[in-house]
Simulated scan of single mutants.
Amino acid sequence: MTDDRLFALQRRERLMEELQRHGAVRVRDLAETLQVSELTIRRDIAALHERGLLTKVHGGATLPTNLDPSPARRQRPVPATSFTIGMVVPSLDYYWPPIVSGARSAAAALGVHIQLRGSSYDQAEDRRQISRLIAAKQVQGLLLAPNLEGDRTDEMIDWIGHLPIPTLLVERQTPAWTPTARQLEWVRSDHALGLEMAVRHLHEHGHRRIGLVLSKGSPTSAFLAQGWRTACTNLGIPSEFVVRESVALDVPGHRAIIESILDRCRATQSTALIVHSDPDAMSIAQYLAEQGVGIPGDMALVTYDDEVAQLAEPAMTAVRPPKGRVGRVAVEMMVSRLVEGKRRPAQRVLILPELIIRNSSVVTSRGR
Rank of each mutant, 00 (worst) to 15 (best):
P314A: 09
T303S: 13
H113Q: 15
L184R: 02
A136P: 00
I357Q: 14
K342S: 00
R5I: 15
P97D: 00
V89N: 09
H276T: 03
A124T: 12
S101A: 14
R368N: 02
R348A: 05
S105Y: 09
V275P: 05
D3M: 13
H205S: 09
A267I: 03
M334T: 05
L224W: 02
L67S: 12
V88Q: 04
K56R: 13
H58F: 05
L48K: 00
K342H: 00
A145T: 14
V78N: 09
L163M: 05
Q226R: 15
G236N: 15
D93E: 08
I257V: 14
V275E: 08
L311K: 09
I85R: 06
I85A: 12
Q226M: 03
Y121N: 10
G211F: 08
I160C: 04
D93Q: 15
H113S: 15
G327C: 01
A181L: 04
L184D: 03
G86V: 07
D151E: 15
K342V: 00
Q286W: 12
V275S: 14
L163H: 09
Y287E: 07
L15T: 01
L39M: 15
E155G: 01
L288F: 10
E125L: 08
N359R: 11
R11W: 09
R43P: 04
S360V: 11
P279C: 11
D263F: 00
I258L: 08
A225M: 07
F223K: 04
V363K: 15
L53W: 07
H113D: 15
A181G: 13
A346F: 00
I45L: 13
P296R: 10
G102W: 05
M282K: 12
T233H: 14
E340R: 01
A330F: 02
Q115V: 12
Q10Y: 12
E340H: 01
G102E: 08
L53G: 02
E259T: 06
V251E: 13
R172K: 14
H162L: 11
D278E: 04
L249E: 02
S221A: 15
E185L: 00
I99C: 07
H22P: 04
A109D: 10
V339E: 03
P90S: 12
V57F: 01
D154H: 04
L144M: 02
G217C: 10
D263H: 04
R43G: 14
E340I: 00
V329A: 07
R368S: 08
S218T: 14
R26N: 08
T65F: 02
L262F: 15
T65L: 02
P97H: 11
V308G: 05
R366N: 11
Q183M: 00
R368A: 12
Q347R: 11
W228T: 01
D250E: 13
A136I: 10
A248E: 15
D4E: 15
F7D: 14
R11F: 07
E18H: 11
P353W: 13
V308H: 08
T230H: 13
V27Q: 01
T174Q: 10
